[in-house]
Amino acid sequence: MANKKILILFFHPRFEDSRVNAQLVEGVKQLQNITFRDMYELYPDFNINVEKEQAQLLAHDIIIWQHPFYWYNCPPLMKQWLDLVLEYGWAYGTNGNKLSGKWIMNVISSGGGFNVYQKEGRNRFTHRDFLNSFDQTAHLCQMDYLPPFIIPGANKLSVAEIEDFMIRYTQIVHFLMNEQIDINKLKELENFNQLNADQWEHQFYKMP
């Protein structure tokens, strides 16, 4: 039964120049039970409406941070959002449990491929290693951090390859809506890139 509500918070300061993200966004915006928010469009002056953003978080079951992987991290507006919206006493700390039990994940477009994001590669760490700060943020806020979905070598992808990643992204979002997911098994994945969609039902759905 697919009824979980998903909030996609999209942070891209140069969305008009991103072939990859334009296609990804076009795909997921067509799905039901999705709320899509283009954060740079909403907050070009970085003046974030904290109460509105918190209300959006409360109204959804799963949050997706979609963003380019800038200097092994996120764009500046996303950092501003994290600093302001996830308040002490609301998201974490004393009585800060408003997000407890929600699921959250990163969907990132990366200029470098998987080959350079290895211990032996130029960047010395994996994408997942660099995302540990987001994992810890989720943990502090009592949320479950899901495996990320990564679009590697984004600047060099062909039209057909971008189309494939868009299809995979929509499949992932649709999969996450299902009530029967075994969250503990899912969190054992390094990233969503490891599996094909036809494997999810057999490995990550709870048995009746």
Rank of each mutant, 00 (worst) to 15 (best):
12 H>S: 09
8 I>F: 00
101 G>P: 01
134 F>Q: 11
114 F>C: 08
181 I>M: 05
80 Q>V: 09
53 E>R: 11
47 N>G: 07
196 N>M: 11
23 Q>F: 03
188 E>Y: 03
60 H>P: 04
125 F>I: 05
198 D>M: 07
12 H>E: 04
155 N>V: 09
119 K>Q: 09
89 G>M: 15
85 V>Q: 03
120 E>Q: 15
110 S>H: 02
53 E>G: 06
178 N>S: 15
17 D>K: 13
78 M>P: 01
44 P>V: 15
19 R>A: 08
21 N>L: 10
5 K>S: 06
126 T>R: 08
160 A>S: 14
29 K>P: 01
39 M>G: 02
28 V>L: 14
208 P>Q: 13
48 I>S: 08
93 G>R: 13
119 K>S: 10
28 V>W: 08
100 S>N: 10
14 R>V: 13
117 Y>S: 09
35 T>H: 06
7 L>F: 03
10 F>I: 04
91 A>N: 08
78 M>A: 04
12 H>P: 02
169 Y>H: 12
186 L>V: 01
155 N>F: 12
204 F>A: 01
37 R>L: 15
162 I>R: 05
16 E>H: 08
43 Y>T: 11
104 I>M: 10
184 N>H: 12
145 Y>K: 04
55 A>R: 11
179 E>K: 11
68 P>G: 04
76 P>W: 03
178 N>L: 14
109 S>M: 05
56 Q>W: 14
101 G>A: 02
114 F>K: 14
116 V>C: 11
154 A>M: 06
51 E>R: 11
112 G>F: 08
207 M>G: 03
188 E>C: 12
141 C>W: 06
167 I>Q: 05
147 P>M: 07
60 H>F: 07
29 K>L: 07
169 Y>S: 00
136 Q>P: 00
43 Y>V: 13
39 M>D: 00
13 P>D: 09
11 F>K: 07
9 L>E: 05
167 I>A: 06
40 Y>G: 06
108 I>A: 05
9 L>I: 02
73 N>M: 10
207 M>I: 12
111 G>A: 09
4 K>T: 03
190 E>N: 09
